[in-house]
Design a protein around this nucleic acid. Structure first.
Length: 334
DNA sequence: AACACGGGGAG
DNA sequence: CTCCCAGTGTT
């Protein structure tokens, strides 16, 4: 094995964090973990992954799951199209009679792009496909001292070529996991721990004294500030809520507290406070009011419904509404 | 190539 | 509070 891979794998063998999906060889469990880990930290994923696989231990089990149940299982993880695509993927896998150990089969599944296909191909099936996620991009940019903008396609192609050169024919899955682990624990965005790095001797960025300045990221969207008003309309053990339409562009099928516009005639009886919520490049400031119960419920279009509090845990509820309800609960305790 | 999509952790 | 993180699908 080449010296780089040898040094990296020796380090990984004793330094890696004990994450639960590293103890399985089941392609389904590995696929689920990789989908959940897209844009989401490992510590957040762990409890979701465990509950998800208890409920859906096989692709066939997820293939026939009701959508509301699936979204409830995913609620809080974000990027809910991942859940819908994963169900479509489960249906495709079931129809194919199970996983086929080929990169192209995996890559064709809904919600599976270059990264996830390479991760599952290498980790579950031992195929030599190098992953390039955010961690690996950072590691590779430093290793090769590449000062290109990692938002640009050409830079990604260059970095992909670099890791393609480094990945060994044996243990490609462990190599990929080791590269990501290095980026997650030592080769971190700020103040990289080069003194502890097992491959520092190969690092051109470090030799040039530029490791901590890489990678270069040019694009930065300015966050959009938005104000929102949510209403707590409660009667014994029930809350007034509405469900977003199935074709909504975001949070489709999720239950939310009513906004002021849904109940134009209601009295804002008491301001409970504000909660903040940052999503993608939006920053919401949510003012929460405790409101009285209207005499008649308006709106065929908004479909306001009374939801029992103990039912809420079994429904997909947006995090903005959840935070508002938490604020109300907190106020009632004291 | 640009944009939309959630949510959370670190400092 | 502010800054940072970064896969996939669509346009």
């Amino acid at each position: 094995m080449p010296p780089f891979a040898r040094k990296l794998l020796d380090w990984y063998a004793h330094a890696h964090r004990p994450l639960p999906w590293r103890d399985t060889a089941d392609p389904w469990a590995i696929l689920v973990s990789e989908i959940m880990l897209q844009q989401t930290r490992a510590s957040v994923v762990i409890p979701y992954w465990q509950r998800f696989l208890e409920r859906y231990p096989t692709p066939a089990a997820l293939a026939v799951a009701p959508e509301q149940e699936l979204l409830t299982m995913w609620s809080g993880l974000g990027y809910y199209s991942r859940a819908r695509n994963l169900q479509k993927a489960a249906q495709a896998i079931t129809e194919a009679g199970g996983f086929r150990p080929e990169y192209e089969f995996l890559r064709a599944l809904p919600g599976v792009g270059d990264y996830t296909a390479a991760a599952v191909a290498s980790i579950a099936f031992g195929l030599k496909h190098a992953v390039l996620d955010g961690n690996v991009m950072r590691v590779a940019a430093r290793l090769t001292c590449d000062a290109g903008d990692i938002g640009a396609g050409v830079t990604k192609k260059r970095l992909q070529a670099a890791v393609d050169q480094l990945i060994p024919a044996s243990q490609p899955g462990l190599f990929n996991q080791a590269m990501m682990e290095l980026g997650a624990t030592l080769c971190v965005p700020r103040q990289p721990q080069c003194l502890l790095c097992p491959v520092a001797e190969f690092c051109e960025g470090r030799k040039a004294g530029r490791a901590s300045d890489l990678p270069i990221k040019l694009r930065r969207a300015t966050p959009i500030l938005e104000a929102m008003t949510l209403l707590i309309v409660a009667r014994d053990g029930e809350l007034l809520m509405w469900q977003r339409p199935a074709d909504s562009d975001r949070l489709a099928g999720f239950w939310e507290l009513p906004e002021a516009a849904h109940l134009p005639n209601v009295l804002k009886t008491q301001k409970l406070g504000t909660v903040r919520h940052g999503i993608v490049n939006h920053s919401y400031t949510i003012t929460v009011y405790l409101a009285g119960v209207p005499r008649a419920l308006p709106g065929r279009e908004k479909q306001l419904k009374w939801i029992k509090r103990n039912q809420l845990a079994e429904l997909p509820v947006s995090t903005t509404s959840r935070k508002a309800i938490q604020l109300w609960d907190k106020g009632r305790e004291s």
